[in-house]
Nucleic acid binder design. Structure first.
Length: 880
RNA sequence: GGGCGCGUAGCUCAGCGGGAGAGCGCCUGCCUUACAAGCAGGAGGUCGCAGGUUCAAAACCUGCCGCUCCCA
C-alpha cells in the first residue's frame, strides 16, 4: 500500500473513480431489491449547468447513492431537454451575428445547425454531470427530441385528440413578436412598469356630453368595439345602451354593462378592445362584440389602423395621444403603474393577439391530478409547495401547445388540400382519411417543449412500448427540481402520467433551493453571475463542492453561494483524509486486513462513547436522508466526524495505540470500525475521497467498491450508556483544566499536576484510564486523588461529585483565581435561582409536564450542591 | 389586489414551546510525531417592532415595519 500524501489532493482521484464505477457498471440497476428511481430533470441544452443545477444534481446523487447502498434496485436515468424556444433563440442569434437568418438558411439547414449546437452542449453538460460525480446510468441517456420520445409525443397527441382533449381554434393568445411564436400563459412573466393612465372623452351620440374612459393603452382605441361600465354603478346607470362615437375612427360603439368592470378603476368606464386584451376578449364573448385587430404579429399597427398602419405600437401611441389632445378628446394624463407581460425566454413584451392555435383541455385532466396530491399519493417536500400546486391546478386553464418554431416535435396533423380534413395520425398518412386525396400538408408548427417534457418519466423508460424498464421502474420514486417549474413541468408530468400510464409519475417531489450569488441575487446569464460548477470543482474538488451544497440545502430557504463555504468543506475533506491516514498508521497491517473484532468487555470509556455516538449518528443520518433533510444529515456526520471522532476519540486512543497495553488490539478494532462506518456514511455526500480511502483501508471489505457497499446499520450491542456518560463527564473536566491553563497563560511546554477530590459515595473513584485521558488530553504530568484541596492549587472543575485542582505553585495569579471562583459562583447561583423560581411557582408545579418538573428539581439539586462546594472553596481561599 | 417565505452573533445561516447554536471572520496561546487546510482557549446576540396566549415564547396567535418571490 502506498502511503497517503500529507494533504488531500482530489486531482486524478475523482476522474479515476468515476471511470472505474462507470466501467464496472456500478451506475446500472443491480436488478435486485425494491426499485428506487429518479428520472433526471433534463437540463436545457441552451447553455451549461450552473450552481443551481449542481445543487440539484448533488442532492439527487446523495439520495441515489444512499438508496443504492441500502440495497435497492437503483436507477438514475439521465437526459437533456431540447428547449424549443430558448434553443431556437440562441441559434437564431448566432445566425444574426453571421449576417443571416433562419428564413434565409431554410428549415432543413436550420435544423441541421441546431442539432450541431444541441450535440455540442449535450456533451458539455454530460461532462459537467460526470465532474459532479453523479451516478447516472449513461446507457439509458435520453434526449427530449430523440426518436423514441418523438414516437411518444405523436402517440400522446393523437390519443388526446381522439378523446377530444386537444382542439384547434382561434383565441386570444400571448404573442412574443421577438420569438415569433405564441406562448402558454405560464410562459408570460408579469412585471409592474411605470406608465400613465390616459383619460379620453368619447362623445355620446345625440348628447352634448361625452363619456370619459381611462386606459393604459391608448393606441388600442382604434380597435375598440364598446365601452363598459359596471351595471351597479349609479353614475352610469342611465347611459347603458347608448351609443358613442369612437374618436379619430368615428366608429359607433355601444355602452355595455359588465360586472367585470371595477368602478374604482379610473372613471369606472373602460374601453373594450376585444382583439388585444384578455379581459376585453371575455367581455366581447359575453356581449357578442366584433373584433377589430389593429396590431399585427410583428407588433406593428395593422392596415385596420389606417394612417397609423406600419408604426410600432409605441410610435402609434405617441401620435394618437397627440391627436386626441389637439382635437380636445384628451382629458388628462396620470402616472400609473401597471403590469406588463414579458416573454420568459427573451423578455420582450407580450402582445395579446387573436390566433389559430392548438390547445389541451385541462379541466378534465386536472381532476385526478388534484386528487393524487390532496390524498398524499404524491408528496411535496417541503409540504407548502403542495398548496402552490393545488392553487394552480384548481384554476387551470386550457394549455396552448402549438409553437411557431422549427426546433421541436412537429405537430402530427396533416391538412387535406382538397377536402380540408384534419388527418391526426401517429404516422404520416399517404392519403386523406376522408377523401383519399394525396394532397396533404403537415401542420408547420411544433409542440411546446413542455408537452414532451410532460411525458418524460415514462417516455424515457420506453413508452409507448410496454418495456421491461417501464414495468420495473414506473412509477419513479423521486422528482427533485426547482420551484419555478412546478406549473410548467411537475404539474404536466402528473397530468400526463395519470392519463397515459394511469399511474402517478413519482411519489415524492423535492423542491430544492435557489442558488443565489453572494449578494443574494438570482444567478442569471444577463447578470453574468452564473458559475460553472467545473470551475469550482477544479479549485476545491467535487467532494467539497457537494458537501457544502448539501449542508446549505435547508428545506425552505435559498442558498447564497460563497466560495468561503466551499473552502470550509475542502478543509473537512482534508480532515477526513488525515484522520484516515492516522488510522492507517496505527492499525496493525501485518495481519493482512483480517477482520478486527470488537470485544464489548474490552472497550474503554472512549471506545464505548464513540461506538454509542456512532450508532446515534447512523440512525440520525439515515432518518434525515429518508426525508430529504440533506442539511441535517450532512451536519450530523460532519459534527460526529470532526468534533467527536477526531477531536476526542482519536486523541483518547493515542495513549493506548502508542502503548503496548492489553486493550490495544481492541482499540484498533474500534478505531477501524468507526472510521470505516463513517466513511460509508459520508460516501453519498463525498463519493470520491471516501472511495479512495475505503479502498486503502487495511480491512476486510464487504464489497468490491464502496459505491455498492451496504449502508451501515445501528448495532445495539455497541451502545454503552454508562461508559458514554462517564466519558462525557470527563470531557467537561478536561475542558475545565484546559480552560484554566489558558487563563493563567501556562505554556503547553509547562506541565503541571492535577489532584481530584471525590465527594460522593465511596467507589466513585478514579479509573486508571481516566487518569490516562486527563494526562494526555489536558497535558498534565500526574493525577492524584486527595482528601482535601492541596496548597497553592487552583480549582479547575467543580460539580456535586468531584473537584479538580491544578497544582500550579507560584504560577497562580491569586487575584485572577478569586475572580474565577466568584464568577463561577455567580453563574451557579443564577442557575439555582432559575430552577427554584420555577419550583416555587405553584402554577408551574401544577401545569408543567412531570418530566420538566423533574428536570428542574435535578438542576436545582445539582446547582445547590455545586454552589455549596464553590462557596467552601472561596472561604478556604480567604483563609489562605 | 390575493398568497408563500424570510428578518437570530460582524457575515452566511441552523434552531421553531422549558434560559441561544454552527461555519467563516475576530482576539489569545501553540510548527503537541494525522492534519497550520491544524490544535487549545476566548470575546461577541434586549432572536425586526408592538401587543396577546401560556406556569413558561426566539419559537404559537394578532397587528405593524422591512426584504424576497409567486399569482391576478
Amino acid at each position: 500500500m502506498e502511503p497517503l500524501s500529507k494533504a488531500y489532493d482530489p486531482k486524478g482521484i475523482e476522474n479515476k473513480w468515476y471511470a472505474t464505477w462507470k466501467e464496472n457498471g456500478n451506475f446500472k440497476p443491480s436488478g435486485k431489491g425494491e426499485p428506487f428511481v429518479i428520472v433526471i430533470p433534463p437540463p436545457n441544452i441552451t447553455g451549461k449547468l450552473h450552481m443551481g443545477h449542481a445543487l440539484n444534481m448533488t442532492l439527487q446523487d446523495i439520495t441515489i447513492r444512499f438508496n443504492r447502498m441500502l440495497g435497492k434496485n437503483t436507477l438514475w436515468l439521465p437526459g437533456e431537454d431540447h428547449a424549443g424556444i430558448a434553443t431556437q433563440g440562441v441559434v437564431e442569434k448566432t445566425l444574426r451575428e453571421k449576417g443571416t437568418s433562419r428564413d434565409e438558411v431554410g428549415r432543413e439547414e436550420f435544423l441541421r445547425i441546431t442539432w450541431e449546437w444541441a450535440n455540442e452542449y449535450r456533451e458539455y453538460i454530460k461532462k459537467q454531470i460526470e465532474w459532479i460525480g453523479c451516478s447516472v446510468d449513461w446507457e439509458r441517456d435520453r434526449f427530449t427530441l430523440d426518436e423514441g420520445l418523438n414516437r411518444a409525443v405523436r402517440k400522446a397527441f393523437v390519443q388526446l385528440y381522439d378523446k377530444g382533449l386537444i382542439y384547434k381554434g382561434k383565441y386570444l393568445v400571448n404573442w412574443c413578436s421577438r420569438c415569433g411564436t405564441v406562448l402558454s400563459d405560464e410562459e408570460v412573466e408579469h412585471e409592474d412598469e411605470k406608465s400613465h393612465l390616459w383619460y379620453i372623452r368619447y362623445p355620446i351620440k345625440g348628447e352634448e356630453q361625452g363619456l370619459i374612459v381611462a386606459t393604459t393603452r391608448p393606441e388600442t382605441m382604434l380597435g375598440d368595439t364598446a365601452v363598459a361600465v359596471n351595471p351597479s354603478d349609479e353614475r352610469y346607470k342611465d347611459w347603458i345602451g347608448k351609443t358613442l362615437f369612437l374618436p379619430i375612427v368615428n366608429r359607433e360603439i355601444p355602452i355595455i354593462a359588465d360586472h367585470f368592470v371595477d368602478p374604482k378603476f379610473g372613471t369606472g368606464a373602460v374601453k373594450v378592445t376585444p382583439a388585444h386584451d384578455p379581459n376585453d376578449y371575455q367581455m366581447a364573448i359575453r356581449h357578442n362584440l366584433p373584433f377589430v385587430e389593429v396590431i399585427d404579429e410583428r407588433s406593428k399597427m395593422s392596415p385596420e389602423a389606417g394612417i397609423y398602419s406600419g408604426l410600432s405600437a409605441l410610435e402609434a401611441r405617441k401620435k394618437i395621444v397627440e391627436r386626441l389632445e389637439s382635437e380636445g378628446f384628451l382629458v388628462k394624463i396620470e402616472d400609473y403603474n401597471h403590469s406588463v407581460g414579458h416573454c420568459y425566454r427573451c423578455s420582450a413584451s407580450i402582445e395579446p393577439r387573436l390566433s389559430d392555435q392548438w390547445f389541451i383541455k385541462m379541466k378534465p385532466l386536472a381532476e385526478r391530478a388534484v386528487e393524487v396530491v390532496e390524498n398524499g399519493r404524491v408528496k411535496f417536500y417541503p409540504d407548502r409547495w403542495k398548496k402552490v400546486y393545488l392553487n394552480w391546478m384548481n384554476e387551470v386553464h386550457d394549455w396552448c401547445i402549438s409553437r411557431q418554431l422549427w426546433w421541436g416535435h412537429r405537430i402530427p396533423v396533416w391538412y387535406c388540400q382538397d377536402c380540408g380534413h384534419l388527418n391526426v395520425t401517429e404516422e404520416e398518412p399517404k392519403q386523406c382519411q376522408k377523401c383519399g386525396s394525396s394532397h396533404l400538408i403537415q401542420d408547420s408548427d411544433v409542440l411546446d417543449t413542455w408537452f414532451s417534457s410532460g411525458l418524460w418519466p415514462f417516455s424515457t423508460l420506453g413508452w409507448p412500448d410496454r418495456t421491461a424498464d417501464l414495468e420495473t421502474f414506473y412509477p419513479t420514486s423521486l422528482l427533485s427540481t426547482a420551484f419555478d417549474i412546478i406549473f410548467f413541468w411537475v404539474a404536466r408530468m402528473i397530468v400526463m402520467g395519470l392519463e397515459f400510464m394511469d399511474e402517478i409519475p413519482f411519489k415524492d417531489v423535492y423542491i430544492h433551493q435557489l442558488v443565489r450569488d453572494k449578494k443574494g441575487r438570482k444567478m442569471s446569464k444577463s447578470l453574468g453571475n452564473g458559475i460553472d460548477p467545473i470551475e469550482v470543482i477544479q479549485t476545491y474538488g467535487a467532494d467539497a463542492t457537494r458537501f457544502s451544497l448539501a449542508i446549505m440545502a435547508s428545506q425552505g430557504s435559498d442558498i447564497r453561494y460563497d466560495v468561503k463555504n466551499i473552502e470550509t468543506y475542502q478543509h473537512f475533506a482534508n480532515k477526513l483524509w488525515n484522520a484516515s491516514r492516522f488510522a492507517m498508521m496505527n492499525l496493525d497491517t501485518d495481519n493482512g486486513g483480517a477482520p478486527l473484532s470488537i470485544d464489548p468487555d474490552q472497550c474503554t470509556l472512549a471506545d464505548g462513547w464513540i461506538l454509542s455516538t456512532l450508532n446515534e449518528t447512523i440512525s440520525k443520518v439515515t432518518d434525515y436522508l429518508r426525508h430529504y433533510d440533506y442539511n441535517f444529515a450532512a451536519k450530523a456526520i460532519y459534527e460526529f466526524f470532526w468534533n467527536q471522532f477526531c477531536d476526542w476519540y482519536l486523541e483518547s486512543a493515542k495513549p493506548i495505540l502508542y502503548g503496548e497495553g492489553g486493550q490495544k488490539q481492541n482499540t484498533r478494532a474500534v478505531l477501524s470500525y468507526v472510521l470505516e462506518r463513517s466513511i460509508r456514511v459520508l460516501h453519498p455526500f463525498m463519493p470520491f475521497i471516501t472511495e479512495e480511502l475505503w479502498q486503502n483501508l487495511p480491512i476486510q471489505k464487504e464489497a468490491d467498491s464502496l459505491i455498492v457497499a451496504p449502508w451501515p446499520e445501528e448495532r445495539p450491542e455497541y451502545t454503552f450508556s454508562e461508559k458514554r456518560n462517564r466519558y462525557e463527564a470527563l470531557i467537561e473536566e478536561i475542558r475545565g483544566i484546559r480552560n484554566l491553563r489558558a487563563q493563567f497563560q501556562v505554556p503547553p511546554s509547562q506541565k503541571f499536576s492535577v489532584a481530584i477530590r471525590f465527594l460522593g459515595q465511596p467507589g466513585t473513584g478514579l479509573l486508571e484510564e481516566e487518569t490516562t485521558y486527563i494526562r494526555f488530553l489536558a497535558n498534565v504530568e500526574a493525577v492524584t486523588v486527595v482528601d482535601q484541596k492541596p496548597g497553592k492549587s487552583a480549582t479547575a472543575y467543580v460539580d456535586s461529585a468531584r473537584e479538580i485542582y491544578v497544582i500550579l505553585g507560584e504560577t497562580i495569579d491569586w487575584v485572577e483565581e478569586r475572580k474565577r471562583l466568584e464568577k463561577e459562583i455567580d453563574k451557579t447561583r443564577v442557575d439555582l435561582q432559575h430552577a427554584e423560581t420555577k419550583l416555587s411557582n405553584p402554577k408551574f408545579m401544577a401545569n408543567a409536564e412531570a418530566e420538566v418538573v423533574e428536570e428542574a428539581r435535578m438542576k436545582a439539586e445539582e446547582a445547590r450542591k455545586t454552589l455549596k462546594r464553590l462557596e467552601l472553596l472561596l472561604k478556604d481561599f480567604r483563609a489562605v
